[in-house]
Amino acid sequence: MQYAILCYHDEKVVTSWTRAEDDAVLAKLAAVHEELKAQGRLGPVVRLLPTTTATTLKKDREPPLVVDGPFAETKEALLGFYIVDCADLEDALEVARALGRANPGGSYEVRPVGLFFPDERAS
């Protein structure tokens, strides 16, 4: 089963990291990524730019409305996500725990994937 691990954190904290702090977190995460990769179960990994770069299309009306900013102004924002093959929820939580040890703070929302279209870009 595929699980999405959605990363939520206080963006003000994350964007205040110095380059060195950021590199240190990425290096620790890389070790966890490598392990998952070696097991052949690491799917796409995405880190999003800060919510200040976000634009929201409200499509509950016609024509849709384009609004500056993220969908929801929350203290902890969606900053990125993983797709990982996991046996069950407990397995997915174990992966999330390992990622959390490398990158403490904030929350991971663990959520099964319903439909997944593989990457079919030209390059």
């Binding site: 110095t18 200040t52 500056d68 900013g69």
Partner: peptide, 25 residues
């Protein structure tokens, strides 16, 4: 520079629809 960028982000969160603040950041 880092402080100015932080202040720029703060300002953009307070004024999310101001193109000049986006431009500044």
């Amino acid at each position: 520079c880092e402080e100015a960028i932080r202040l720029g982000r703060l300002l953009q969160r307070l004024f999310p629809t101001e193109p000049e603040i986006m431009g500044l950041l």
